[in-house]
């Protein structure tokens, strides 16, 4: 059974349909990337799934349970989805350790000791445990991204959402983030990653969903999207020598 089943999802802002009938599945332990030009609805899609934005219509099944209904426990749903933001969104007033422990302590009712043990485990997994007493303002972009991932993992989510995880990073740090996502993949963590970065998508994702104008135009492996589609839009976006988007 798929961890996540999205069916005919629509989101409109006024007359404009930002998502127009999106359907896809995400298998447990799988990694899918969502790509497409700016404004195609990628980030809106992630936010609709965890209900930061309310979908207009359609259905989302999370482990077989419908989660778009009014009676859905939205906070419980969000706790099952680890969200890593483009600009990291670390809590500036908290040190690294507190950034990672605040969720488990306040949401999962862990004791401070238990939460710190869990946080240190995740920080070590991401090679940033030595920064635990630093504040976000003292970290580089790559370090912040790792801490943001550790914060998400400390909640033991069923799936990790990445929203443009490398767009604010230089190529070296972007490769580090790709390595981290691959490491998570090898540990059977389920990932849905919105990105503009084809190299990242190719190196981490089993399959890529290509979104344009709020619709899925293709879903396939990176190599197939690059080499085996005649569709003009897909060739322009993924084809050899395609301009960076």
């Amino acid at each position: 059974m798929a961890l996540l089943e999205v069916r005919h999802l629509k989101k409109t802002f006024g007359d404009r349909a930002v998502l127009d009938g999106i359907s896809f599945d995400l298998e447990e332990g799988g990694i899918k990337a969502i790509m497409g030009p700016s404004g195609c609805g990628k980030s809106t899609l992630l936010r609709c799934i965890n209900r930061l934005i309310e979908p207009t219509s359609g259905s989302i099944l999370f482990r077989g349970q419908e989660v778009t209904g009014r009676d859905t426990d939205v906070r419980a749903l969000r706790q099952m989805i680890g969200f890593v933001f483009q600009n990291y969104a670390l809590y500036r007033h908290l040190c690294v350790l507190d950034n990672v422990t605040v969720g488990p302590r306040k949401l999962k009712r862990m004791s401070r000791r238990e939460a710190e043990g869990k946080a240190l485990h995740e920080l070590q997994r991401l090679n940033v445990a030595d920064l635990r007493h630093s504040f976000p303002s003292q970290l580089s972009g790559g370090q912040k991204q790792r801490v943001a991932i550790a914060r998400a993992l400390a909640m033991d989510p069923a799936v990790l959402f990445f929203d443009e995880p490398t767009s604010a990073l230089d190529p070296v740090m972007a490769r580090e983030v790709a390595a981290v996502i691959n490491q998570l993949h090898s540990e059977n963590v389920t990932v849905l990653c919105v990105t503009h970065d084809f190299e990242l998508a190719r190196s981490v994702a089993d399959r890529i969903i290509f979104l344009r104008d709020g619709r899925i135009r293709a879903e396939d492996t990176a190599d197939n999207l690059r080499n085996h589609y005649d569709d003009h839009e897909i060739r322009t976006f993924f084809g050899p020598g395609a301009a960076p988007v």
Binding site: N50, R75, R78, I81, F83, N87, A89, H93, L107, M155
Partner: peptide, 25 residues
Amino acid sequence: DPSEIEAAKAQGFTSRQIFHLMTLP
């Protein structure tokens, strides 16, 4: 930074928790 509030919502915090843990300090 409004993204911190969004991150707290995405983690599952209630509005009241966001106020006293993130916003007020």
